[in-house]
């Protein structure tokens, strides 16, 4: 067997190797720690590809039929999902691991200088930076809270909320034209906390989708990845649950794409009316 062939390892994990090659893989797994580590890394990458929707249809079917059959594998999948969710939440935070110089140390070094002009310049700069940081932090925190709320409302295991005073529910149809003037309309009152948009199952066979919400000027309002098909009374729907606070009065377009593709699958138009109390 060739050195660490990734396709052989993946075929092994997907349960499609012939008996003899499978034995070779397993014997090497038992005796070669580097090889075993490579198989475990390949397994993590397979799980990651499944979670992100990057597996092709054939591989996904094999994954579900042959790989995801035991409690251990399901636990590994839950960990991959949790890590994916946590990493997406982290996307709003600055990374800072790129080895850039430590600004704080530079400040301290310069403040230690005896030159008055330099000290005053740095003092002014620090004040400006503090004000800027506060503004950025305020905006970042709002963004992070929104992101966390979107994840909470739309993660695969989140429940679909029932329509009621706090939940405005809207079923969207792909054939509604904005010009017709009969757009489906969500009314937001002071009690409304969540707007739930439901669309029919897209014709694509993907299991994970991304929703992109745009305002009437075509500007992107938000983007929610990782949406899965839900089964409601034997009808398959895709649901997007939005905190009511992100929507102002106006017309919107909801675009669905496959998780890792920019190609549109379906567009839906709808209107939001905010009632002032």
């Amino acid at each position: 067997m060739k050195e660490l062939e990734p396709e052989i390892i993946r075929s092994y994990l997907l349960g499609v190797l012939d008996e003899s090659t499978r034995e070779q893989v397993e014997q090497r797994l038992m005796t070669d720690r580097d090889y075993k580590e490579e198989v475990l890394i390949s397994e993590e990458e397979l799980l990651e590809d499944y979670v992100s929707g990057a597996l092709g249809r054939h591989e996904r079917d094999l994954f579900l039929k042959n790989y995801l059959t035991t409690p251990l594998q399901k636990q590994k999948l839950r960990m991959a999902l949790a890590l994916d969710k946590r990493a997406r939440l982290n996307m709003l935070q600055p990374a800072g691991i790129d080895g850039s110089p430590n600004l704080l140390q530079r400040f301290v070094g310069v403040l230690g200088t005896r030159k008055l002009f330099l000290q005053l310049s740095w003092a002014v700069l620090i004040l400006v930076l503090m004000a800027g940081t506060w503004l950025i932090f305020k905006s970042w925190r709002t963004g992070q809270e929104l992101h966390a709320e979107l994840l909470r409302l739309n993660s695969p295991n989140s429940s679909l909320l029932d329509a009621g005073p706090s939940v405005s529910q809207l079923s969207l149809s792909p054939f509604t034209l904005r010009e017709s003037g009969n757009l489906p309309t969500a009314t937001i009152t002071s009690e409304t906390q969540v707007v739930q948009l439901r669309t029919p199952q897209p014709s694509s066979q993907q299991q994970i989708y991304q929703a992109i919400l745009k305002d009437s000027n075509g500007a992107e309002v938000l983007r929610v990845p990782g949406l899965t098909i839900r089964n409601l009374n034997n009808t398959k729907v895709l649901a997007l649950q939005l905190p009511a606070g992100v929507l102002t009065s106006g017309d919107y377009t909801l675009t669905l794409t496959e998780q890792n593709s920019s190609e549109d699958i379906a567009d839906y138009s709808f209107r939001v009316i905010r009632q002032q109390n």
């Binding site: 399901k74 949790a82 899965t228």
Partner: peptide, 23 residues
Amino acid sequence: DNVTDTREPSETKDFEREYECLE
């Protein structure tokens, strides 16, 4: 060769507990 229908494997009650532990 047993095949389990796991088409919606992510919908499991254990997920939230694991997420808390991950944090």
